[in-house]
Design a protein around this nucleic acid. Structure first.
Length: 643
RNA sequence: GCCAGCAUAGCUCAGUUGGCCAGAGCAGCUGAUUUGUAAUCAGCCGGUCGGGGGUUCGAAUCCCUCUGCUGGCUCCA
């Protein structure tokens, strides 16, 4: 008798070994049609494999991440099969599933492949999927495995096999394609109903740039055609929200070849928006006990020798600039912390002063490889909303709480509702990789974990992801169309206080080492503004948007009244403009809608007589007629706290 | 940095296998129009076809090279 325990704790008993698929059929035919894989005693396996002893079983469908993974991994095999049939003799690297789909790294030998070949490959994949080919699992010896790929002439697979032990090697066979693979796979290719190859790119074999570059083809598949349509619509939506596009359209920022790549130029409207964000954050930080400091854009090479950054990053930075006479070397500052350490050292500190919090919107310059640059999210010159907290080890927890308060407050103000947190701790296997005493690490890691727990943060813990100088907490937001962005960060640092020999005098009249905490709620203004643009699709919150109101006089006759309205709004600190072109109202409305201006005030004869405005809201349409003061107060209310 | 693709007016794009002085829409300017909830009409201005070199009788179109952009790879204090 074999007892299968299902997730709801019910137990089903069978006289002999059974597959997950058969169990599913036993429950319902409909369920069986949707089972992609199975989780047996916590391990994901093919739904078609026999379960020979008592086990817990979870049937995995498209709704489970592991189900999707099996689907996409199987799709990679399907693509490989199609490609092998179309381009005989190609060699295969690895073909895993990824967060959104799958890819396969392929050595196309003499074929030259571009995205123009996608349709052909997709069509072949569709044909093969329709054949409902099963994924046949075979356990093979290392020798058999090697012989197969020697015969096939695929050195990549041979290299992979070389790293495996005899007895743990399996092949999966689908139609004409056999692959080295540990699985699991979906029962048959018929589950794959919609296929889209999305991207093509070069990728080094095993990520090593000294080795051969293979062609990586990305794709995604779905069990329903509708799901693909929805996915493509999401991509369309993302395209429309692309901050590079909206940045141009809304005249927020630009780049110039003459200035240099990765060096953003903020246009008046973008600069205004950014300043407003900075002003807001400064206000929040002032309330939280931060003190502003200002440091220069360059720093002596010695500063970075002290900080240790010279040794670690010196060779891959912008080269130092030199004074003409003395030949003294300066780096463009790649971060603000060394400067802030020197500010801390300006005078001795007592434990009574701590924590000290130095804040600066510090512009930094980092050499990023040219291929990495991307709009405002990846640039060579950017401004961090930086601050460094110098505190005693037992203040870490309070300080984390304080920073989290700030981050939560500003994320809420900017309408990021879905915030995830990643806590990065030491790799327990390799304590030697980290600087600082074990007690200190222990204390900081415990403090961070406690904070997360007490505040019920939506946090995951990653071991081994900490920096060598301390543990950290990263903030990841999900935007309006479901994409994740890593923004803010809080990092504990035991290294710099050591290197800069920072001290404070404790209650015991002895010198002690402070702990330093780096933190940036936005990360960088550039990246944050980019994310904000994409999050709100260019429809900024009213308090941030460059132009809040546009006044549209029906004709030149009402110019004077428009001016009256303008002045009144100005008294309320509402940013407005008058569209005084001799255009029809419909045209003015259209243009204002395109510029995403939140409020349009239409004024004509009726309004002038009654001292009112006709209000039209962006994307929503006519709101009716309001007294000017009533409207102004309403707006003032909506703008509220943030200025 | 590497692989692949792309680069035509301020913006979005046309430009057949190399062949008349390189086109359109939008924006801008000028004029007419004085307008009631998503585009009034007309005229004008605007391009060394990313830069440089080459092939050719002739290059936006073909080749080389540089620069930049896009998608990946690698990296990220």
């Amino acid at each position: 008798m074999i007892n299968i325990t299902l997730p709801d704790s019910s137990i089903k008993s069978y006289p002999k070994a059974i597959t997950a698929l058969e169990v599913a059929k036993d429950i319902s035919e409909g369920l069986a049609r949707n089972v992609l894989a199975a989780k047996v005693d916590g391990r994901v396996i093919d739904a078609t494999r026999l379960i020979a002893s008592d086990a817990s079983l979870q049937l995995l469908t498209w709704n489970d991440n592991e189900g999707k993974a099996a689907m996409w991994h199987s799709s990679a095999h399907l693509m490989a099969e199609a490609i092998e049939q179309l381009y005989s003799g190609v060699k295969f690297g690895i073909g895993p599933n990824i967060e959104n789909g799958f890819y396969y790294d392929i050595d196309f030998t003499d074929y030259s492949i571009s995205d123009k070949d996608f349709e052909k490959i997709e069509n072949r994949m569709v044909e093969l999927a329709k054949e409902k080919q099963t994924f046949i699992r075979k356990e093979v010896s290392k020798k058999e495995a090697e012989e197969y790929f020697i015969k096939k002439g695929d050195e990549y697979k041979l290299e992979l096999i070389n790293d495996l032990d005899n007895g743990e090697i399996t092949f999966y066979e689908t139609g004409t394609f056999t692959d080295l693979c540990r699985g699991p796979h979906i029962p048959n290719t018929g589950f794959i109903k919609a296929i889209k190859l999305t991207k093509i790119a070069g990728a080094y074999w095993r990520g090593d740039e000294s080795r051969k570059q293979l062609t990586r083809i990305y794709g995604i598949t779905f069990p329903k055609k509708k799901a693909l349509t929805e996915y493509l619509e999401m991509l369309e939506e993302a395209k429309k929200r692309d901050h590079r596009l909206l940045g141009k359209e809304l005249e927020l920022f630009t780049f110039s070849q003459n200035v240099g790549q990765g060096l953003p130029l903020w246009l008046p409207k973008g600069a205004e928006l950014r300043e407003r964000l900075e002003r807001y954050l400064k206000k929040v930080q002032k309330n939280a006990g931060y003190e502003p400091v200002i440091t220069p854009h360059i720093g002596s090479v010695n500063l970075y020798k002290t900080s240790g950054h010279y040794e670690k990053y010196g060779s891959e930075s912008f080269k130092p600039i030199k004074t003409p006479v003395e030949g003294e070397e300066f780096f463009l500052k790649p971060m603000n912390c060394p400067h802030h350490c020197e500010i801390y050292k300006f005078k001795p500190h007592s434990y009574k002063e701590l924590p000290i919090r130095y804040a600066e919107f510090g512009t930094v310059y980092r050499y990023e490889q040219s291929g990495e640059l991307h709009g405002l999210t990846r640039v060579r010159g950017f401004t961090q909303d930086d601050a460094h907290i110098f505190c005693t080890p037992d203040q870490i927890k309070d300080e984390f709480n304080g920073v989290i308060n700030i981050i939560k407050e500003i994320f809420t103000a900017l309408d990021f509702k879905d915030v995830m947190i990643q806590i990065s701790l030491r790799d327990p296997q390799h304590p030697e990789k980290y600087i600082g005493s074990n007690e200190n690490w222990e204390r900081a890691e415990t403090a961070i974990k406690e904070v997360a727990q007490e505040r019920k943060l939506n946090a995951t813990i990653e071991y081994g992801e900490a920096a060598f100088y301390g543990p950290k907490m990263d903030f990841i937001v999900r935007d309006a169309i479901g994409r994740k962005w890593q923004l803010g960060t809080i990092q504990v640092d035991y290294n710099l206080p050591e290197r800069f020999n920072l001290t404070y005098i404790g209650a015991d009249n002895d010198k002690h080492r402070p702990v330093m905490i780096h933190r940036a709620p936005f990360g960088s203004m550039e990246r944050f503004v980019a994310v904000l643009i994409e999050h709100c699709g260019g429809n900024f919150p009213l308090w941030l948007t460059p132009e809040q109101v546009i006044i549209l006089p029906i004709s030149e006759k009402y110019q004077k009244y428009a001016k009256t309205v303008f002045n009144l709004l100005k008294n309320y600190d509402i940013r407005s403009e008058i569209d005084s072109r001799s255009e029809k109202t419909g045209r003015k409305i259209r243009d204002a809608e395109m510029k995403k201006i939140p409020y349009m005030l239409i004024v004509g004869e009726k309004e002038e007589k009654e001292n009112t405005v006709s209000v039209r809201k962006h994307k929503e349409g006519n709101m009716g007629t309001f007294n000017i003061e009533t409207f102004a107060k309403h707006i003032e209310n909506e703008i509220e706290v943030h200025i």
